[in-house]
Design a protein around this nucleic acid. Structure first.
Lengths: 258, 258
DNA sequence: CGACTGTTTGAAGACGATCAACCCCTGTGG
DNA sequence: CCACAGGGGTTGATCGTCTTCAAACAGTCG
């Protein structure tokens, strides 16, 4: 188990730096996706201990560091505890395609469960802490812990729905509006503001994720600013007229991710 | 359990109409995704019986019929036994976005497991037979049958990877080439030819899936014909130069789906 | 302070969408 | 048996949006 270190984001505003609880031998970290599995239920100390032993805290990864690489042997999946991770694919010409962004409570690597190798690469975008565990071992344990099995199914199902986000050809401003709203919602779920937040990833990564050129993203941002719909100060965003934004994004079918 | 009826596709060439085995009380249908779970292993007759009882054979659905609709209460997932199903989303203007095509052995509805409602609609594209079961009940049973649990995890994982297929902005011909090859591979996995096959879905559906206009698909097809890379006779396709096709599609990152 | 990366802005061009018309095939009904 | 209607598919011409290329700019870190 890795000793806890304060992430660099501790320097940021309070609403940007969630407190991280590393847990202890008997009680799980509250930011962990498995928190709800073991805390309230009457599992035996033994079972909880086995669950706890399965999970290895890794990190911190610094921005730009690779968590795992595509085609590497698949040994483990990761749950984000703090920070931000992107998953990417590289095409023939070396251009990166961003598949998704993962924030605390979300899980990476589940798309490799049916293979022997990772099917994408994962790269930290900020100082990042992760929980790492063998999926096979976790599945074994889930055999005895119905709630754990349920949690795994939920996580995988949500991953399917998330992977379908943004399918379809829509105007650049629509896609970007949808992205802003989705990001706000995900933050809101963790108790932060859905209207005033940071987009910790580079414009380039947003552009890639939305299948747009970085220049186009830049122009959309300018348009949203000019129209008074939102303000952008470097990577800080404030949504001034969320209703207009929703109307924009409404052109695109939305996925309710829970 | 629904009585078996020969699908309309029985009129087609032999390589288009897979034999369908409906199974019996003790032995599972060989086309079922769960076939491998119960056949070789030493499960008790009782467990097998419970598994069997969980699964309800439904259909046939005729082309155009809806299997389930988005936002309907989520009661069950479906495994395709014969035929073809598409999953779709409808946007604000009533335009359909195709999320995926599902052939025998593939499972629909897994993206709704984490919700109370279906997150997309499923529509049969051909005479279709399905296996239907409550995911919750299946998960309960999986608690006692490790191989069943494993199968479910595999299916969900593959669904995640499949949902990521085709992400990114690539030229129309590249996307279509990738689609043709992917379709061929899926058929090959079921023992059919990867070079000579039928695309049972409408051009419109292919276009929507690839985020293209139907006209564009049509033009790409013409180009591939003119270049002697493949021939198209209505919905029948023959790949003449698969290597060239692969070079085309290579521009796009490929997902190895198993 | 100067190299570097990430971001913005501008001008030109390409690709695909759209619109409109036509064609083909199928099924239907007189 | 043929006429007709209708859906799906193809073709052509035009237009828009986004990409591309090029350059300037801003913030960061050594």
């Amino acid at each position: 188990m890795t000793a806890f270190q304060a992430p660099a984001s501790a320097l940021l505003e309070p609403w940007q730096s969630p407190p991280v609880d590393d847990g202890d031998a008997e009680r799980f970290c509250t930011t962990c996706v498995f928190g709800r599995v073991c805390l309230p239920k009457g599992y035996s100390k033994h079972a909880l201990h086995r669950l706890h032993c399965l999970i290895e805290h890794v990190g911190p990864f610094q921005a730009g560091q690779t968590v795992f690489r595509i085609h590497e042997p698949f040994n483990a999946v990761y749950s984000v505890r703090a920070g931000l991770v992107k998953t990417v694919l590289i095409d023939e010409r070396g251009r990166e395609q961003v598949l998704g962004f993962y924030t605390p409570g979300e899980m990476i690597g589940l798309d490799a469960v049916h293979t022997a190798r990772y099917s994408c690469s994962a790269i930290a975008l900020d100082t990042t802490l992760l929980c790492r565990f063998s999926f096979g071992a976790m599945a074994n344990l889930a055999q005895e812990m119905p709630d754990l099995q349920h949690t795994l199914f939920q996580l995988m199902s949500r991953n399917i729905a998330a992977a379908q986000w943004g399918r379809g050809d829509y105007p650049a401003d629509v896609k970007f509006a949808g992205f802003l709203l989705d990001w706000g919602q995900r933050l809101a779920k963790r108790g932060f503001s859905a209207k005033h937040f940071v987009l910790p990833m580079a414009r380039t990564d947003i552009a890639s994720f939305l299948s747009l050129a970085p220049e186009t993203v830049s122009r959309v941002i300018r348009k949203l600013s000019d129209d008074g719909i939102a303000t952008f100060d470097r990577r800080e965003v404030t949504l001034l007229k969320p209703d207009l934004l929703k109307r924009l994004a409404g052109a695109m079918p939305t996925f309710e991710l829970e």
